[in-house]
């Protein structure tokens, strides 16, 4: 069950770029989740989870679930400890863009959220010796069919 839950968190589109305004509801969930974690009062969620998730997951999940709510979220994020997985897509793309191309592709193996991040790489430098030219079109097809 925990696996399934964590899995759901990872695959949730939590890092899409600018957030829409329309889901402003439920900011309370964000703050209560964050506050209870921070103050060390384990909520029900934390109590049932392993040590790993008890430090990061409840807060992250609260943020992720409300990622369509710009103001509360950004505020919550900037005031609390931020983690890489909670960054929006624009920023992740900026970071991968600062990597050499091969490294950016390698990073896409890290998790499904990052799978497409390298495609915004500004420097599709295919001059790397190991590429055979067919690589990129193939990847594109595959990614497109996923969408």
């Amino acid at each position: 069950m925990e696996d399934a839950q964590r899995r759901a968190e990872m695959s949730r589109p939590s890092i899409h770029g600018r957030m829409d305004d329309d889901e402003q509801h439920n900011p309370a969930a964000v703050s209560t989740g964050l506050v209870s974690t921070l103050a060390g009062h384990p909520s029900q969620a934390t109590a049932t989870r392993g040590f790993m998730s008890s430090t990061t997951t409840p807060a992250k999940r609260a943020v992720v679930e409300n990622s369509d709510c710009p103001v509360d979220n950004k505020r919550a994020r900037t005031q609390r400890r931020l983690s890489f997985p909670s960054l929006p897509q624009d920023i992740v793309s900026r970071i991968t863009a600062a990597l050499p191309f091969k490294e950016a592709v390698r990073m896409s193996a890290v998790c499904s959220k990052l799978r497409r991040a390298w495609m915004y790489h500004p420097n599709l430098d295919l001059g790397v010796s190991a590429t055979d030219g067919s690589v990129v079109p193939t990847m594109w097809q595959e990614e497109k069919s996923e969408l």
């Binding site: 696996d3 964590r6 899995r7 998730s53 990061t56 983690s83 890489f84 997985p85 890290v110 998790c111």
Partner: peptide, 11 residues
């Protein structure tokens, strides 16, 4: 390094 949780078997 980036603080992801350990991967599930699927991942």
């Amino acid at each position: 390094t980036l603080g992801f949780p350990d991967p599930t078997p699927e991942e």
